[in-house]
Simulated assay, not measured.
Amino acid sequence: MPGRTVAKLATVSAVIAASVLAVAPTAHADLVTHCIGTGGAVTVPNDLLVPAGESCALTGTTITGNVTVAAGGNLVVTGGRVSGEVRVAADGYLDATETTVDGQVVLAAGGYGIFLKDARTGTVTVRPKGSTTIDSFLFAEASTVAGHVNVGAGEVRLDRGTQVQRNLSSTGTYYTDLHDSFVDGTLSVLNSATGSVVCGSAVQGRATFAGNLGGVQLGPNGTLDSCASGGYWGGDVSITSTTGGVTVDDNIINGQLAVTSNDPAAQVAANNRIRGGVTGDQAASSTNRAARVAAPDREDAGDQRAEVRRTSAVQEAAAAGAAKL
């Protein structure tokens, strides 16, 4: 199985000219701030636009309207606030650290990715890839999504105490993993190319895993990723039509576990506490303690992709700034 790639992104520095204001073409339209460069602890009293192919780095900035990141643009916000929504176009990138977005965050088909760290947002949506060539990602650390997470493409990893206050729905991603995270609604992972790992996390509602090609690992001792502990499941858990292996280890399931039509049959360890019992086909109970050591570390495996984007953005920003001096 190919190693998992998790985009672990740092702040993109931009050394270019200050933001400028431009008036929208219609007579009654609000002003729109075009951000090309850096901004500090000021209030933008309208919408903000990062033009196509440009980079914008904001620190302590408040934006009272909506934000649009045009195709190929990069927006990095640290310690800021957006009163509206954030929409990111194809090949666009959003990095929000210690930042609040009151509205939704939407990554368009072919968007490069979203990185949230110590952030709070409304519903987060990653559109299906469609005919685009870019595989998106959503990576969140210690963040809160005060709504749903709906993902239709790319790499998904929620980590380090991230909370989803409603449902998490994933269809057709490369993988969808939860580490030390909390979903206060239902969890659905369907048709993932390399499967799903849930480690040290809690899901309050029903959980459904179906049609995943690379396997499903709930808890430690699986082959997909290193994992220290299992999780808590507040409702029924269903794992069906999965290839690549299913392991369920060290979990508390306050409902029924259904494991059907998986190839190979699911391995359900004896140390699980399953209130509603197990239905379906399962392999003989076994515990592969060596798997924890042998499993690849997905968090560290894919920094290369992020580094390419980060380096490129910094170089382009520096070049643009030098041209304006």
Rank of each mutant, 00 (worst) to 15 (best):
S192Y: 01
L187Q: 04
S201N: 10
A193R: 15
T194R: 07
C199T: 03
S188I: 06
T240I: 12
L190S: 00
V237A: 11
S188M: 12
T208N: 12
L187C: 02
L218N: 04
S238G: 05
V246L: 01
R206P: 02
Q256E: 12
F182Q: 10
Q256N: 03
R273G: 07
S181V: 11
I253G: 00
R206V: 14
A193F: 07
G205M: 07
N254F: 00
I239M: 00
L178C: 04
Q204V: 15
T223G: 06
T242W: 06
N271E: 11
S192D: 11
W233M: 09
Y175Q: 02
I253R: 12
Q217L: 11
S181Q: 11
G214L: 03
S226N: 06
D263G: 10
C199I: 09
S229Q: 06
T223I: 10
D184S: 07
P264H: 03
V248A: 02
A265C: 00
D177C: 04
S196Q: 03
G255Y: 08
D180H: 12
S188Y: 01
V278K: 07
G245F: 05
L218Q: 13
Q256C: 08
F182E: 11
G255M: 06
G234E: 01
G255T: 01
V278D: 02
Q204K: 15
